[in-house]
């Protein structure tokens, strides 16, 4: 077993080092393919490399079977882009999770985001049995105990020391009960989260309100909060997210701007409408990042350009967040 000197860091991951040095962090999202095609991962890696400090690899997102996040993460490691593997509680029990975490660490993966997981009824195997042996908080605690106590969940010692992950968790400032959300975040911090990536934000005033509570509780000093953003692709997508996606609030202002973006372009000219929408989506996203950077307690952004990884570069560049810092040693 390789003894990795973490030099005082919990994991020594690039994301951890960037945050520890006080830089405004940028993470992105990379969705694995619904196939075993490694080239898709390599191609997407090139779209993100150099523009983000680490890239999240989703874990069967929206309950649709895709290449495993850990396998895809291992390809990212080979390609020189740091992965944050997402791990949901939907598909695995505590045995499988710990076994996969050991495997992920052996493959050079240093960041893990602990999630509950979308319900399987949304995905392509709605008749599947779900697991939920642990919930996301219990998963956070388990990963922390693997790292800090060198103990498996059962209490048994891990000979030679446990895997040192930088531990992430999600927060949805827009879910209900709204008053409870900062407290649930506090529970995630108490469970051992090092960083938080939020749900997509399309309602900045409400997010500000949430962050004010978070700062009042002093949580921003205990955990690095990365605000979730994502470029809108069309007015239809904006409306759908506003009206149909559970736990999501989209301000009418953004829907209106996406509608206005294609005003005067004939419906038949699909390419022109697409370009106009995408340009506006990127513009809104850049403005949002600039607004989020002004909010106390926000330590970075997490950009979710779902199936549109090419948008990452212009967004990060447009927000003035290039070049990404290189933090070596301590």
């Amino acid at each position: 077993m390789t003894d990795v000197s973490t030099n005082g860091y919990k994991s020594g991951s690039n994301l951890e080092r960037v945050l520890a040095a006080g830089h405004f962090a940028v993470t992105g999202e990379l969705g694995p393919p619904k196939s075993h095609d490694a080239d898709v991962i390599r191609r997407k890696t090139q779209m993100l490399k150099g523009y983000v400090d680490a890239a999240n690899i989703t874990d069967n997102q929206t309950a649709i079977v895709r290449m495993s996040s850990i396998a895809a993460g291992a390809i990212l490691v080979q390609e020189g882009l740091e992965p944050v593997i997402q791990m949901t509680c939907r598909d695995r029990n505590r045995l499988a999770m710990q076994s996969d975490l050991l495997g992920a660490a052996a493959l050079g993966i240093k960041n893990v985001l602990c999630l509950t997981g979308d319900h399987q009824s949304f995905g392509n195997h709605p008749t599947a049995k779900n697991v939920h042996d642990l919930d996301s908080l219990q998963l956070v605690r388990m990963v922390k105990d693997l790292r800090d106590e060198s103990k498996f969940q059962c209490g048994e010692e891990i000979k030679g020391g446990g895997p040192g992950f930088f531990i992430g968790a999600a927060a949805n400032p827009f879910g209900d009960p709204f008053e409870w959300r900062p407290y649930r975040l506090a529970k995630k911090v108490a469970a051992g989260a090092d960083f938080i990536q939020t749900q997509l934000i399309y309602d900045i005033p409400r997010f500000k309100e949430f962050m004010k509570r978070v700062v009042d509780m002093g949580l921003h000093e205990k955990v690095a909060i990365l605000a979730g953003v994502g470029p809108l692709k069309s007015s239809g997508m904006a409306r759908y997210m506003r009206d149909k996606v559970p736990g999501m609030i989209v301000a009418d202002e953004y829907v209106d701007r996406m509608v206005a973006a294609v005003a005067g372009i004939p419906k038949e000219d699909k390419a022109a409408r697409r370009d106009a929408w995408r340009a506006e989506g990127i513009k809104i996203c850049i403005e949002q990042i600039q607004q989020l950077m002004e909010i106390e307690g926000v330590a970075g952004v997490h950009i979710m350009a779902i199936e549109w990884e090419a948008a990452i570069q212009p967004i990060v560049e447009g927000a003035g967040l290039l070049p990404r810092p290189e933090v070596n040693g301590r």
Binding site: D118, H119, D135, A170, D176, G247
Partner: peptide, 13 residues
Amino acid sequence: SKQLLNGPCGGSQ
């Protein structure tokens, strides 16, 4: 739906 002991999840609205 997810048998959470530390809920609610992000999907509650």
